[in-house]
C-alpha cells in the first residue's frame, strides 16, 4: 500500500497567558491509502489537535507548529509549509473532516443543498445546475431519503443523524484521499451510530479513502479500525493493529482504558475499574514517563527518565519501562479482563 500521509516528529504548542502548553509532543505516524486509523485517548490528550493540524485548522497563533515538524501528504508536499492559497485548494479537496457536533458545524442560514453545492462549485468548478445534480447524488450515497426534497431543507429541519449524513456528504463531495472523523457519533444514539459507522465503512471500501477516526469509544474502534494509536498527554504511548491493541496491548494506560468500559458480560453492580488521578498539566515540564503519576506499576526510573520505544512486532510498539529486560514482569492476562463470549 502507498503512503498517503506521513507525520514526522509533530510538535504543537499553544501560547497562553499562563505559559506554553505543549499539546502534541513528538507524534509520528503513517497512513496508507484506504486504511482506517483510530486515535483514542481521554479529553485533552491531543487527539483533536493532531487531527486539526493535518488540515491546518488550528489558529496560529496561539497555536504553533514547532520547527522540525513535518506532515508529508501523498509523498511530496509538506502540509506544514503550505501557503494560504494552496491550503484553500487543499482543504476539502484532498483532506476533509467531519466534526463531532452536526448541530453547530452546519450553517443554519443556508439550505443543506446550497452548502454541499458550495464545495462543488469552488473545488470542481461546476455550475449551479451540475452542482445541484451532484448534491442530490451525494445525498443518495449517504442514504438520505427523498434527496430532491431534502436538498431545500435547512439544518434545523433535519434530525441529528441526518445532519451528520449531510456533513459526510459534504466531506466526500470532492473524493478526498483522507477523511478525518472527529468523534463523528458521540452526539448520536446507538442505533444511528451503527448506521453512520456502516456508512463510513462503505465509503472507505467504495472510494478507497483513508479514514482517521478520533474517538474515546473503544467499541466503535473494535468495529472499525485497522490500526489503533493510544494517545496520552500529547504522545502516542502505544500503537498497533486492532487485534494487537485489544488482545496483546502491554501499556498500563491501554489496559486501564480497556478495563474501564462496562461490558455486557460483566456482572451488574460490580465495581468498575477506574483510573485515579488526572492527566498531567502540559504547561509544566514533564519529567520521566507522563503516565507515571497514575500508573500502578510505576518504578523509580519511570519518574526520572522517559521510556524509549519498544518494538514488539512490525506494527506494534509502545513506550513503557516495563518492557525493559530488568523490569518486573506483569502478566497481562491477570490485569486485563478476558475476552467475552456471546
Amino acid at each position: 500500500m502507498e503512503k498517503i500521509l506521513e507525520v514526522k516528529d509533530l510538535n504543537i504548542s499553544f501560547h497562553t497567558y499562563a505559559g506554553e502548553v505543549k499539546a502534541v509532543r513528538g507524534v509520528s505516524f503513517d497512513l496508507h491509502r484506504g486504511e482506517s486509523l483510530a486515535i483514542v485517548g481521554e479529553s485533552g490528550c491531543g487527539k483533536t489537535v493532531t487531527a486539526k493540524s493535518i488540515m491546518r485548522l488550528l489558529k496560529e497563533p496561539p497555536a504553533e507548529i514547532k520547527p522540525g515538524s513535518q506532515i508529508i501528504f501523498d509523498g511530496k508536499e509538506d502540509i506544514v509549509k503550505m501557503n494560504r492559497k494552496r491550503l484553500k485548494s487543499f482543504r476539502g479537496a484532498d483532506v476533509s473532516m467531519i466534526f463531532q457536533d452536526p448541530m453547530t458545524s452546519l450553517n443554519p442560514t443556508m439550505t443543506v443543498g446550497k452548502q454541499i453545492m458550495e464545495t462543488l462549485q469552488i473545488h470542481k468548478g461546476m455550475n449551479k445546475i451540475e452542482a445541484k445534480k451532484e448534491a442530490i447524488e451525494l445525498l443518495k450515497i449517504v442514504n438520505i431519503p427523498n434527496p430532491e426534497v431534502r436538498i431545500n431543507n435547512y439544518p434545523h429541519q433535519l434530525s441529528g443523524g441526518m445532519r451528520q449524513r449531510v456533513m459526510i456528504a459534504m466531506a466526500i463531495s470532492c473524493n478526498p484521499k483522507i477523511l478525518i472523523a472527529d468523534e463523528p457519533t458521540t452526539a448520536l444514539d446507538v442505533t444511528i451510530q451503527a448506521q453512520i459507522m456502516d456508512l463510513l465503512n462503505e465509503l472507505k471500501d467504495k472510494f478507497n479513502t483513508a479514514i482517521i477516526l478520533i474517538t474515546h469509544d473503544l467499541g466503535v474502534v473494535a468495529n472499525f479500525a485497522d490500526k489503533v494509536q493510544v494517545m496520552y498527554a500529547g504522545e502516542i504511548i502505544e500503537r498497533g493493529t486492532r487485534e494487537e491493541i485489544f488482545y496483546k496491548s502491554m501499556h498500563p494506560y491501554t489496559w486501564a482504558l480497556l478495563n474501564s468500559v462496562p461490558r455486557l458480560d460483566t456482572e451488574s453492580k460490580q465495581e468498575l475499574y477506574s483510573l485515579g488521578g488526572t492527566p498531567p498539566d502540559l504547561i509544566l515540564p514533564l519529567k520521566g514517563c507522563a503516565f507515571s503519576s497514575r500508573c500502578e506499576y510505576a518504578m523509580e526510573i519511570c519518574l526520572e527518565r522517559k521510556p524509549e520505544t519498544t518494538q514488539l512486532s512490525p506494527t506494534h510498539s509502545l513506550c513503557c519501562w516495563l518492557q525493559h529486560p530488568d523490569a518486573p514482569k506483569v502478566n497481562r492476562s491477570e490485569v486485563v479482563r478476558g475476552e467475552i463470549n456471546g
Binding site: 451510530q193 451503527a194 456502516d198 474502534v221 473494535a222 486492532r242 487485534e243 480497556l258 461490558r263 455486557l264
Partner: peptide
C-alpha cells in the same frame, strides 16, 4: 445489537439487526 462491543473478534462475527 447496535451497542458496539470492545472486542474485535466478536465485532467481526456478530450480526447486527439494522433499524
Amino acid at each position: 445489537s447496535a451497542i458496539p462491543i470492545p472486542d474485535p473478534k466478536i465485532e467481526d462475527t456478530r450480526k447486527r439487526i439494522k433499524l
